[in-house]
Write a protein that binds this DNA or RNA. Structure first.
Lengths: 214, 214
DNA sequence: CTTTCTTGAAGGATGAATTCTTAGCCATGG
DNA sequence: CCATGGCTAAGAATTCATCCTTCAAGAAAG
């Protein structure tokens, strides 16, 4: 039985290419280019498999996954991303993912991953497990510190990401369907807790934490 | 007549997807995953079109392009990369490229680019043309804009740095002993020239240019 | 079973920033 | 020498952001 698949990736060229690849394995019922659209469409379409990236506008893939595991628990999540670090991979599984691939993975792995998750199994690209070993052999001299970003609530991360993407308070309010006042509240709480005092510092923090890229 | 195409990208998942996309436009005569292999294969295959990324192992796309324009001058080069900066685009054209796309470009652009270069024309993704034209109209005599940051005046960089450090307009005015109005003027000009529209984006730009650190 | 924390949601008043226009000053270089 | 580009600055209208305060539901702790 061909799985119904939803694909999320903000690079539309890659999205188009992926679609072609995936069509060999199942029916692509939709494609989206940001995290928020993903959450929307996933609820409408209830796909069997969701293929998603980590870095996406409006809502990053990890936070999207956390929402999706609650909203559409029957949809299996397959991450397909550039990030080849064990940290991201473990975060992804903690967020409810069933598989983790990187864009350097062989195309065949996509097929294997889809079939694995449809059987209720998990799949992890061998390219990462190798990195895990390498990381264990060469302990941290890279600043791979545990992220204090988890000190923030999901909602706060969501707001922080949008701030760092350059959205104004009003725009964020509209996107989240909440009042401008609430956004302001979240922002000030974030600033309190992180001891940051400007949009610029929040932005740098978000970049450092990988919530947004440059 | 269907063009013979060689594709180079080090992310094999993406390579596979691109191949599917490209097959609608021409015959994929080969795929490679690093810059050196590209130079090798290009000489053997003499393709009509070469689709290549900038960041590749062993030899980066720009340097590969410089070699290819000499070794296989009849092969048209189409860059397809993540890098959305005018600098990279102009470098690409100086290195002999016939087209420049980014992975955020619509899939349709790939078709358009291939057809354009086959007609001997050039193609530049609309997503960055605006910035590139400013740079490419000047470049031969005056290498005034090697790095985009040099497009700013010293005063503008000064202000930008303070913005990115989290200072408010008022604080900057005090620090520089100028009026708040003047600071606002500089800020708006910077935004104009860089086509950025928020403090967050200015901050990310400043970080990317090394004006401030995270 | 209340109390307390945490999280999410807002109102009102005030201070800060943005937009647009206009304009003076100074140095550099055709 | 005067045109150009860079830096300075003002006023008025408007929109945004911030500060302080209040409210409510759910979880955790007493």
């Amino acid at each position: 039985m061909r799985p119904r698949i939803l694909i999320a990736d903000d690079h539309s060229m890659i999205l188009a290419g992926l679609r072609k690849l995936v069509e060999a394995e199942g029916d692509v019922v939709g494609t989206v280019e940001d995290g928020r659209a993903l959450v929307e469409e996933a609820q409408k379409l209830r796909p069997d498999v969701i293929l998603l990236d980590i870095s996406m506008p409006l809502l990053n893939g990890l936070d999207a996954a956390r929402q999706l595991t609650k909203l559409v628990p029957d949809s299996k999540l397959i991450f397909l991303t550039m990030h080849a670090t064990p940290t991201y991979a473990t975060e992804a599984f903690k967020a409810g993912a069933s598989a983790y691939l990187i864009k350097r993975s062989a195309a065949l792995e996509l097929k294997q991953a889809i079939q694995a998750v449809m059987r209720g199994q998990h799949y992890m690209t061998p390219l990462i497990t190798k990195d895990v070993l390498a990381a264990t052999l060469h302990p941290p001299d890279a600043p791979m510190r545990q992220r204090p970003v988890t000190a923030l609530t999901p909602r706060q991360r969501e707001v922080l990401q949008l701030i760092a993407e350059g959205k104004g308070t009003k725009g964020i309010a509209t996107l989240l369907n909440i009042s401008v006042k609430t956004v302001e509240f979240h922002k000030s709480r974030i600033m309190d807790e992180l001891d940051l005092h400007s949009t610029a510092e929040l932005t740098k923090y978000a970049v450092a934490e990988g919530l947004v890229s440059l």
